[in-house]
Computed example of a mutant assay.
Amino acid sequence: MGEEQVSIPCVFMRGGTSKALYFHERDVPPAGPDRDRLLKRVMGTPDVLQIDGMGGSRLVTSKVAIVQRSARDDVDIDYTFAQIDVARDGIGYDANCGNISSAVAPFAIDEGLVEAVEPVTTVCIHNTNTGKLLVSKVQVKNGKARVHGDCVIPGVPDTGAEILMDYAGTVGAKTGRLLPTGQAVETVTLEDGRLIEVSLCDVANPCVFVDAASLGMSGSELPDAITSNRALIETLGEIQSKMGERIGLYSDWREVHLPGLPLAVIVAPPVNQLRGRQWAAARGRGHGPDGASRVLRQVP
């Protein structure tokens, strides 16, 4: 209609250690170029600062969730995740995001897409990116998802209401197997001759797990120390690309630029170094006796 300003309802919400814009499916264009242009424009991409949009100049703050009531009898909600690039003019739908998934059920409850049941509402979520099911248990009070609570997770200040996420239904999301290579531990030979032991698992997303010590890291490095280490980033990229080729995601690892999958996960023994009280508390509350992960939700 030639209008310069168009209003689109959305919710700006944190899930875990990421933030996203949450849209109703009905309020955005169908999947395709028009939707992509809209989502990139909303975030302010491409721009390293995303100054003309809602993005926060980092990948963890440049995410979108598109949600609707599911037509399936065995599912409550359909949810599509979009990762918007920051400096590059790109958008990806090839994987899910665990952090953003944790806020899908609270959004659905607050928006009336599922019935709010106190004290806990269970929501079955179909992730359209992977075709897999997630189950979320959300604390509810007065018909809304609770915000206040005593749950603590590393990387998020203060406390919040606990959300339990069951990812058992996401095994083999991309490859169809928990261990896509059939091996629990295997060795990647780098071009400089180093041998790095890794584990590749496919739960929600394919992830390659690497011991921090094998990369010369302590595991307590903060993001800036990692992203500014060009040699480390190149090593991780080589590991990701080679493991991606090994499981059939790429035909030639040498042709992969900034591999998105498998995700790289650096692991190390715990240390009391980050955020003092909250880090210590997180070690006590991060996982319950049932092994279920706990994720915070908060509306910024």
Rank of each mutant, 00 (worst) to 15 (best):
M1P: 13
M1F: 13
G2K: 03
Q5G: 10
V6D: 05
V6H: 03
S7N: 09
C10Q: 00
R14S: 07
G15A: 14
S18M: 02
K19L: 04
R26N: 09
P30V: 12
A31C: 05
G32I: 14
D34E: 15
D36E: 15
R37C: 02
L39S: 03
K40F: 04
V42M: 11
V42C: 04
M43Q: 13
D47T: 03
L49A: 10
I51E: 10
D52H: 08
G53Q: 04
M54S: 09
R58V: 13
T61C: 10
T61V: 14
V64S: 07
A65P: 04
Q68Y: 06
S70L: 03
S70Q: 07
R72N: 08
D74V: 02
D74P: 02
I77Y: 11
Y79F: 15
F81G: 10
R88D: 12
D89G: 01
G90T: 15
I91M: 03
I91E: 00
N96W: 12
G98T: 14
N99T: 12
I100C: 11
S102P: 08
A105V: 01
P106S: 06
P106T: 13
A108K: 03
A108I: 12
D110N: 14
E111W: 12
G112C: 02
G112H: 01
G112E: 08
E115I: 02
V117G: 00
V117E: 09
E118G: 01
P119V: 11
V120A: 06
T121M: 03
T121W: 10
T122R: 14
V123A: 07
V123Y: 07
C124Q: 12
C124T: 14
N127T: 02
N129I: 09
K132Y: 00
L133W: 00
L133T: 04
V135W: 04
S136K: 07
V138M: 03
V140R: 08
K141D: 01
K141P: 00
G143S: 06
K144T: 00
R146M: 15
G149F: 13
G149M: 11
D150L: 06
V152N: 02
I153D: 03
G155K: 11
G155C: 08
P157D: 14
D158C: 10
E162I: 09
M165Q: 11
A168C: 11
G169S: 05
G176A: 02
G176I: 08
L178Y: 15
P180V: 00
T189E: 11
L190P: 14
E191A: 14
G193T: 15
G193L: 09
R194G: 00
R194K: 15
L195A: 15
I196Q: 14
I196Y: 13
E197T: 15
V198S: 11
S199E: 04
V203Q: 08
N205R: 07
M217C: 10
M217G: 03
G219H: 12
G219L: 09
A225P: 06
I226V: 13
I226F: 05
S228P: 08
R230C: 10
L232S: 04
I233S: 00
L236S: 11
G237W: 10
G237Y: 12
E245F: 00
I247V: 01
L249H: 02
W253K: 01
P259T: 00
G260N: 10
P262E: 02
V265I: 15
V265E: 05
N272A: 10
N272M: 08
N272H: 11
N272E: 07
Q278I: 04
G284I: 08
H287S: 05
D290W: 01
V295A: 04
V295K: 06
R297T: 15
Q298Y: 01
